[in-house]
Amino acid sequence: MGQGETEKIAGELIRQAVMLLMDRNEDITLSSVLNILADFQMRAFNTGQLNACIQAIADVSAAKSGSLREESALKDKVAGKCSSCRSSDNVTTLH
């Protein structure tokens, strides 16, 4: 199975995880999607499925990490500690 096919299946696994959470009326968060994907990974019955699960988990984990970085940067800006400014005293607007 090629990388393109693995990525396609990984996307489908993420979609299935979200649909499962919706069916259960559970909150859809990156953490809850990761939990479902981990369950899928434990149930994978061939190398192709396992690789797709690993790819899906990596994709959602990267999104989660990016989300956490953005949240931290926003908190810094709100607190007047923009990392691109030399001094927090110079921050007058969010940029």
Rank of each mutant, 00 (worst) to 15 (best):
V91H: 10
K64H: 13
I54L: 08
L30R: 13
G2M: 10
L21R: 00
M19H: 08
L94M: 09
S84W: 08
G66E: 15
C85P: 00
A79I: 00
I57E: 15
G2A: 10
K8F: 14
R69I: 09
E26R: 00
M22F: 07
L94Q: 05
R15F: 12
S65L: 15
Q41T: 07
S84D: 11
V78A: 13
D27W: 01
I9V: 14
K77W: 13
G11Y: 01
A38Q: 14
G48V: 03
H95K: 14
V91Q: 15
K81S: 07
T6Q: 06
A62L: 13
I57A: 08
S67G: 07
H95G: 05
T29C: 04
S84A: 09
E12V: 11
I36R: 01
L34Y: 06
S32D: 06
T29G: 01
L74G: 04
K8C: 09
K75S: 11
L74K: 14
I57D: 11
D89W: 07
V18Y: 00
E7K: 12
V18M: 00
Q3R: 04
V91S: 04
V78F: 09
R15M: 10
E7I: 10
T47F: 10
S31F: 03
N90F: 14
E26H: 02
K8D: 13
S83Q: 05
S31I: 03
S31G: 04
Q3D: 14
S31R: 04
I54Y: 03
R15Q: 10
I28H: 01
G4V: 02
C85H: 05
S88V: 05
Q55K: 03
S61P: 06
E5D: 13
N46P: 09
L21F: 01
A63R: 15
G48S: 09
V60T: 02
I57K: 07
G66C: 09
S67F: 06
K64Q: 14
L50P: 03
L74M: 13
I28W: 00
T92L: 10
E5T: 14
A10F: 05
A52Y: 01
A63D: 09
D23M: 12
K75C: 07
L74R: 15
L34C: 08
D39I: 15
A52D: 03
L94D: 03
S67Q: 11
D89S: 12
G4F: 06
L13T: 04
K81R: 15
G48C: 04
G66D: 15
S67W: 06
L37V: 06
I36H: 00
E5A: 10
I54W: 00
Q49K: 13
I54R: 02
M1W: 11
C82Q: 12
Q49C: 06
M19C: 05
A73E: 10
E70A: 08
I9W: 05
S72M: 08
D39Y: 12
L21D: 05
S32P: 06
A10C: 10
N25G: 04
M22H: 10
